[in-house]
Structure formats: structure tokens, C-alpha cells
């Protein structure tokens, strides 16, 4: 197929550009570092990631129940964030929970964005019958409520335990939104003359989609991808709450919040740390998305300074 041939040469072209034109990447980096909210968010997100992934190696407890830990201990002393009724160290739970949540959220966002934008761009570029058929498939995924479908799949396969399975289930039902967004953008982009210019030079469909359409749709794609992170976290929390997500003794932020829902006033240390962390993750990712979108658009920096 000519499609495959063009994929090969695309990669070749991209590699050549990396070695020759590094300045372009540098300018994007410089532009990103100038975006203050994005830089602050990036630092915070890195700290959160370190906390979630490296933290457990340095903390004496892990997230499981220990007989040595007294239950319902308020924060302070040996347990800076207190302990749960069953006897977990909340700090350890928080680290483990953030880790699982981040893994799920990023996997969902990545998989859905890649699949969704390719799907949407292809539908939008070809238009006509191809578009109609591809978008009807998207519609099917859009109208099925995520939680119900996820619950049905997870319940039947018993895949609830592993984070990767949960991430895949959520991804299956969230790529469609991205596909819709990208298709809309591509529908207008493909009428632009630079697309026809590429066609007149002999570029294939895949070349045009990868080299021209997707980069120009980067803004909406990034925004949708960052929103998806939040959606995935909430979906995972919802599934955990229904008993279909990550199961005890393993833990996620959503699950922590869910189980602390009756203790907001009596034992606030169980509710607020995971809640605040969840909000922080969503916010930082949104700001980073903004910064990326502006840095990738060569026209934006001229206006904003």
C-alpha cells in the first residue's frame, strides 16, 4: 500500500529535520519557558510525580494495613497525615493513590488523543462517505454512558484490579470526543490552500494528515487532551466508588475520596489531602496544556509577551 510507504518516508523526513534544524525545537522550548503559569505548573507536576513514584521508596510505611498503626490517628508525629480507621498510613496511601491515578490518567489521555486525533483527522480529510461512516462509529461511542459501559465491561471481565485494564476501558470510551473535535478542525483546514499545495506537490494523504493537518490542529488537540486527564481521573474515581476500579488493598485518589466521604467533618485528614492533590493535578495539567499550545503556534508569541 502506498500508505505504508509514505509513513516510512515521513519518519525519515522527521529524523532529518531533528538533526539539522534543532533551532526550531529550541525556539519552542524558549517560548514555553517564557509562559510563567505553565512553568510553575510544570515544576509542581514534576514534584507531584516524584512524590507519587519516588516517595514510596523513602517512606517507612506502604499503603497497606498495619497492625502497628493505631486507627483514626490525627495528623502529626510518626504519621504526618494521620491514619485511617483500618490502620493505614494516610501519607503512604496518598503516594500510592496519586501514583495509580496518574498512571491511569496519563495512559487514558495519551491513548485517546493519539487514536482520536488520527481517527478524526482521517475522517475529516477524506470527507464524504468515509467521514459519515467513521463519525457514526464515533457517535456510538459517544452515546454510551462511560460509567455504565465501563462497569459492564469491568464487571464481566473481572479486570477491575489492574490499573492498565481500567485505563484501557476508560480510553475506549473517551477517544471519541477527541475524534469529533479534531474532525471539525480538519474539515476547515483541509480547504486551506496549503493542503492543496501539498497535494499538487504529490504528497499522499498520510503525509498531509501528519505533516499539515495535525500540527495545525494542535491547539484544540492539546486542550482536549488536558481536559481528558481530568475526565479520566473522575471516571476512575467513579469506577472505584462503584467497586469496579482499583480495589483495596490497592488504592487511588478517587477511592480515597470516596471512602472518606462520610468523614469530611469528623476526620478531615482523610478527605482533604487526596482532594487537594486531585485538584492540583488537574490544574497544573491544564496550565501546561495552555503553555504548550502557545509555544507550538508560531504566530502566538508575536502578540503575547
Amino acid at each position: 500500500m502506498s500508505e505504508n510507504g509514505m509513513f516510512g518516508s515521513t519518519r525519515k523526513g522527521a529524523k532529518k529535520k531533528d538533526s539539522a534544524d534543532r533551532t526550531q525545537l529550541q525556539t519552542i522550548l524558549i517560548r514555553f519557558t517564557r509562559h510563567r503559569p505553565a512553568m510553575i505548573s510544570l515544576v509542581m507536576l514534576i514534584l507531584i510525580v516524584l512524590f507519587a513514584f519516588v516517595g514510596p521508596f523513602f517512606w517507612m510505611w506502604d499503603h497497606t494495613v498495619y497492625k502497628e498503626i493505631p486507627s483514626n490517628l490525627p495528623p502529626g508525629g510518626e504519621h504526618p497525615l494521620g491514619s485511617s480507621a483500618a490502620g493505614n498510613d494516610v501519607l503512604a496511601q496518598l503516594m500510592r493513590g496519586a501514583q495509580q491515578t496518574l498512571k491511569v490518567a496519563f495512559t487514558v489521555s495519551l491513548v485517546s488523543t493519539v487514536v482520536g486525533s488520527m481517527w478524526g483527522a482521517t475522517a475529516g480529510y477524506y470527507g464524504g462517505r468515509v467521514d459519515a461512516l467513521m463519525m457514526r462509529i464515533v457517535d456510538i461511542f459517544l452515546i454510551v454512558p462511560l460509567l455504565v459501559a465501563a462497569a459492564a465491561i469491568a464487571g464481566n471481565t473481572g479486570a477491575g484490579a489492574s490499573w492498565s485494564a481500567i485505563a484501557m476501558i476508560i480510553a475506549i470510551f473517551s477517544w471519541a470526543t477527541i475524534a469529533r473535535v479534531v474532525r471539525g478542525v480538519v474539515l476547515s483546514l483541509r480547504e486551506q490552500e496549503f493542503v492543496e499545495a501539498a497535494r499538487a506537490s504529490g504528497a499522499s494523504a498520510s503525509w498531509i494528515i501528519i505533516r499539515h493537518l495535525l500540527p495545525n490542529a494542535a491547539g484544540p488537540i492539546i486542550v482536549a487532551a488536558t481536559l481528558l486527564v481530568a475526565v479520566a481521573i473522575l471516571a476512575e474515581a467513579g469506577m472505584s466508588f462503584l467497586g469496579l476500579g482499583i480495589q483495596l488493598p490497592d488504592i487511588s485518589l478517587g477511592q480515597m475520596i470516596g471512602s472518606a466521604r462520610t468523614a469530611v467533618t469528623t476526620r478531615p485528614w482523610l478527605f482533604y489531602p487526596p482532594g487537594v492533590l486531585l485538584v492540583l493535578i488537574c490544574l497544573t495539567i491544564n496550565f501546561i496544556g495552555d503553555g504548550l499550545r502557545d509555544a507550538l503556534d508560531p504566530r502566538q508569541t508575536r502578540v503575547r509577551r
Binding site: G13, F194, A197, A198, S201, D297, R299
Partner: peptide
């Protein structure tokens, strides 16, 4: 509209050569 706003001028002018595989 006829120039891709996301590409540098060198990339735009060189694109037909890359498409035809003699952009080395």
C-alpha cells in the same frame, strides 16, 4: 492560506523535495 503557518519557510520550500525523496 497557501503557506502552512506552522512550518518555517525553509521547510515549506523544501517540502516538495522531501515528498519526492530528494531532500537530502
Amino acid at each position: 492560506a497557501s503557506l502552512d503557518p506552522r512550518m518555517t519557510v525553509s521547510d515549506i520550500i523544501g517540502e516538495p523535495m522531501r515528498i519526492h525523496g530528494d531532500g537530502h
